[in-house]
Design a protein around this nucleic acid. Sequence first.
DNA 1: GGACGATACCTCGTGACCGATGTATTACGT
DNA 2: ACGTAATACATCGGTCACGAGGTATCGTCC
Lengths: 180, 180
Amino acid sequence: MRRMLELAILGFLHDTPLHGYELRKRITALTGHVRPVAESTLYPAIKRLEKAGLLARETRLGAVAAPRHVLTLTPEGRQELRKRLAEPARGDITDENRWFTLLAFLRHLDDEAAQAAVLRRRLAFLEEPASFFYEGERPLSAEELDDPFRRGILTIARATSRAELTWLRATLTSLGGGNR
Amino acid sequence: MRRMLELAILGFLHDTPLHGYELRKRITALTGHVRPVAESTLYPAIKRLEKAGLLARETRLGAVAAPRHVLTLTPEGRQELRKRLAEPARGDITDENRWFTLLAFLRHLDDEAAQAAVLRRRLAFLEEPASFFYEGERPLSAEELDDPFRRGILTIARATSRAELTWLRATLTSLGGGNR
DNA sequence: GGACGATACCTCGTGACCGATGTATTACGT
DNA sequence: ACGTAATACATCGGTCACGAGGTATCGTCC
């Protein structure tokens, strides 16, 4: 989940400088109920981003407890965030967890047309005919399954898909200039 | 995603013996549109499970192309599958991808009460009040957000949650003996 | 004064992931 | 005859995740 974590770090820092611990709490609030973030994953990630010049660190002594390392997004970091938002990897579009993370920061893409382009990628993905279960090549519908649990998967996935399609189309319309 | 992959391997082999390549195609059909499985992840996983005595390998020469290694679930493997289904890790409950994988094979738990217990764990998780966005401690609802993208996240998550709760309650009822 | 929890950061080792690459066969089109 | 794709399995190396553990300060309760 490297991409997801790094995106969240860059995204949160776009709003305001934060130290690692606070960052951790915000990330936990955003995605922690689904997939908690270990400290031993977060701190190395911060270091990676720092080494890449995407964020700067300023040590502030004894404000509360241990010295805090306040992290600020550099101009390069800001640009990298925009790039990651505008050109997401395929996995960022298809994996709901990653997609939600992307959506949470998509407002930082200042260009409405670019925002719309990202939404259209998700739209295209959702419009692909895909199931979880197949008979040969043919995707099976919920009604064709005996297994109540597998039927549940399809029922839930269909409800999600429908809600998201509705939202996507409405949002694309309201983005105005976003029609191709 | 180790647990997810291993569960899928054990689950598919519970139905019928398969060779690695066919296993790969089935796993791809099941979860590939969201998160593709690399061959270099699958084969080591098979070896791990084989080394742990959960599956046995039988080489069949030249049936089609290269020699196939037909994999069969051992009795220990069958037991391990049941154990993983009956006692899922927290992440298997909270992460939708992993939860769906679990659901796809839950029928292999022959005990209806055990199946119901697993569903109730998911039910409890979904009933926890959780949002993605907070103002201090208070979870924010979709209506309180300016950001259309964050509003979308909540709208979609709510629709999913509602559909799944409906399904969970209906299925728990129809599992009959499953009331506590 | 001492225990405890929260704050705040860090390192290390095990193990996992996965892209790249390799090997070899069959099948099919041209 | 040759290229290409599908079948089928495997290894290797770089990178990453993360649990376990460590260090240190501050506030609070008993």
